[in-house]
């Protein structure tokens, strides 16, 4: 068994060892060992040139990553968390995403940006955002959300191999989670969704930190005689429309879990996909379980009430199945 954070570190090590063009930079990734202890030991192994502690300048170090990628390097940039990535949004949206197109295909940006996301640690409104949808909105970048230890490893490797800029969201509650890691297996395409648990009565679609909650909910639902299929989206851009429509065409019911606010969320996007392309497959209205429309509160009971939890997923699935 390996933890999610160790799986990422293993992938980073592999990438840094195998390709001299790869380097890793971000705030506190070196001496400190990474804000989530992901990169512990990397500075010692690879040195200051390839494991770079940056100043606090999200916009400029992400932009420098873009420039270095255009210049022939393979940078992996860690932005501590999605909350701080807002200071770098300009570089991601106005530069990384558009460079290939705007230059008529002359310049590509093979950049990987990793960041932690999500709530659950009682660190309040400025440190608990889930803004994956902001990035997934933008053509020109790709967005991954590994929910398992294996994916945390494999997706980082796949992202670096990809010639386009890839943003990886790691839910902060997952870093300590244990799971199996096989570094020799051939990984499935990172751009396809996965059925994490097959079922027949209702499709529960989740990504990132909500996947374990969806799986727990499915277990509880089984006890109550409801067979839930759990889909892990894995890639948020591109979205695996076929997998979404395929599963719902079998179960005819959909519950969408998203730790983002409901308004304008990826759950909304998936609802629209289902309404457009699977409308006649649906036997019940789509249900969305999202974060309540408030800044994430500090107090534990309020934070828990704000973000999707197992009981809300179970309840939504039961309502969908019973038609009530």
């Amino acid at each position: 068994m390996t933890t999610y954070r160790d799986a990422i570190r293993t992938a980073l090590q592999t990438l840094l060892r195998e390709d001299p063009r790869v380097f890793f930079m971000g705030e506190d990734v070196g001496r400190y060992g990474g804000p989530y202890a992901v990169s512990k030991g990397l500075l010692e192994e690879f040195g200051e040139d390839r494991v770079r502690d940056t100043p606090l300048c999200e916009s400029t170090f992400v932009g420098a990553g873009i420039g270095a990628a255009i210049g022939g390097m393979r940078p992996i940039v860690e932005v501590m968390t999605v909350n701080f990535s807002l200071l770098a949004l300009d570089q991601v949206v106005n530069n990384a995403a558009v460079m290939r197109h705007m230059s008529g295909g002359q310049f590509e940006v093979p950049l990987v940006v990793r960041m932690a996301t999500g709530g659950g640690k009682q660190i309040a409104a400025q440190h608990s955002h889930s803004l994956e949808n902001w990035y997934a909105h933008v053509p020109g970048i790709k967005v991954l959300a590994p929910a398992t230890v294996q994916d945390a490893h494999d997706m980082l490797i796949a992202a670096l191999e990809d010639p386009d800029p890839v943003v990886i969201f790691e839910h902060q509650m997952l870093y300590g989670v244990d799971g199996p890691l096989d570094t020799d297996a051939t990984p499935p395409s990172p751009w396809k969704a996965a059925i994490r648990r097959p079922g027949t009565d209702v499709t529960v679609i989740a990504y990132g930190g909500s996947v374990p909650k969806a799986l727990t909910a499915a277990e509880e639902l089984e006890k109550e005689g409801v067979s839930a299929e759990v889909i892990d989206l894995r890639s948020l851009r591109p979205l695996d429309r076929d997998a979404i429509i395929g599963s719902v065409s079998r179960t005819h019911r959909a519950v969408l879990i998203d730790e983002a606010w409901k308004t304008g969320s990826l759950a909304s996007e998936i609802s629209a996909i289902l309404a457009e392309d699977a409308f006649y497959e649906l036997d019940a209205p789509i249900a969305r379980v999202c974060t309540l429309e408030v800044p994430i509160p500090y107090a534990k009971h309020l934070e828990e009430a704000a973000i999707p939890q197992v009981d809300r997923i179970v309840e939504a699935a039961k309502r969908t199945v019973s038609g009530g």
Binding site: T60, G63, G71, M73, N95
Partner: peptide, 13 residues
């Protein structure tokens, strides 16, 4: 917006 890109190009070199 071009300044960080220039910094990155120089870093690559």
């Amino acid at each position: 917006g071009g300044l960080p890109i220039a910094v990155g190009l120089a870093l690559a070199d």
